[in-house]
Simulated scan of single mutants.
Amino acid sequence: MKRLTDFIEKQSFGVCNALGDRLGFSSSSVRLSFVYASFFTFGSPVVLYFALAFWRNVRQAMRRQRSTVWDL
């Protein structure tokens, strides 16, 4: 079961894992909170999830483009 959740997390932008690492929670508890919050609020956290995924991908792209501060 752990391998399945790791595969799904890697394929789904890694937002829950990044939030869990930053806040000090396990990624499964963050993922479960997203599921419960989207169930009770009729899917509005899904918009937040996609916004965070977009921001995370933009930050990764910026890091890949510029390796040091002096590369302009």
Rank of each mutant, 00 (worst) to 15 (best):
V15Q: 03
R56A: 12
L32M: 09
Q11G: 15
R56E: 08
P45T: 04
Q65K: 12
G24E: 02
G14Q: 06
V46E: 04
S12H: 04
G24M: 07
F54T: 09
P45L: 00
L23I: 08
G43M: 06
R22Q: 06
V30H: 01
S29G: 02
L48A: 15
C16S: 07
R31A: 03
K2M: 05
K2Q: 05
V69W: 09
Q65F: 12
C16Q: 07
T68H: 09
W70T: 14
G24L: 07
R63G: 13
N57V: 13
I8Y: 03
F39Y: 11
G20P: 01
W55F: 14
F40D: 03
F50K: 09
D71F: 05
R31G: 04
R56C: 04
M62S: 14
W70P: 01
G24Y: 01
S33T: 10
S12K: 02
Q11A: 12
A61L: 14
Q11W: 07
C16V: 07
F34V: 06
R22A: 13
I8M: 06
W70R: 13
V69H: 09
Q65I: 15
R63F: 04
Y36S: 11
S12T: 09
E9G: 03
R66W: 06
S33E: 00
S44H: 07
S12Q: 05
L23A: 10
A51K: 11
V69M: 11
T5L: 10
T41I: 08
Y49K: 10
S26L: 12
V69L: 15
T41Y: 05
G14C: 06
R64D: 13
R31E: 00
I8K: 02
F39P: 00
F39E: 01
Y36E: 03
I8V: 12
L4Q: 08
Q11R: 12
D6H: 04
G43Y: 03
G43H: 04
R59N: 14
L52W: 03
F7L: 10
S26V: 02
A37V: 04
R66F: 11
R56Q: 14
R3Y: 03
L19V: 01
S26F: 06
R22V: 09
Y36Q: 05
V47W: 09
M62Q: 15
S67R: 15
L4A: 14
D71Y: 01
R64T: 13
T5G: 00
F25A: 05
L52T: 05
R64V: 13
A37S: 14
E9F: 00
S38G: 08
L72F: 10
L72S: 12
L48D: 04
S12I: 00
Q60L: 15
A53W: 07
L52M: 13
L32N: 12
T41C: 08
G14F: 01
V47C: 08
A18S: 09
G20K: 07
S28C: 06
Y49I: 06
F42V: 12
V69Y: 10
I8N: 02
S38W: 01
F13K: 03
S28N: 11
L4V: 08
Q11L: 13
V35S: 08
Q65H: 11
K10G: 08
A18L: 08
L32C: 11
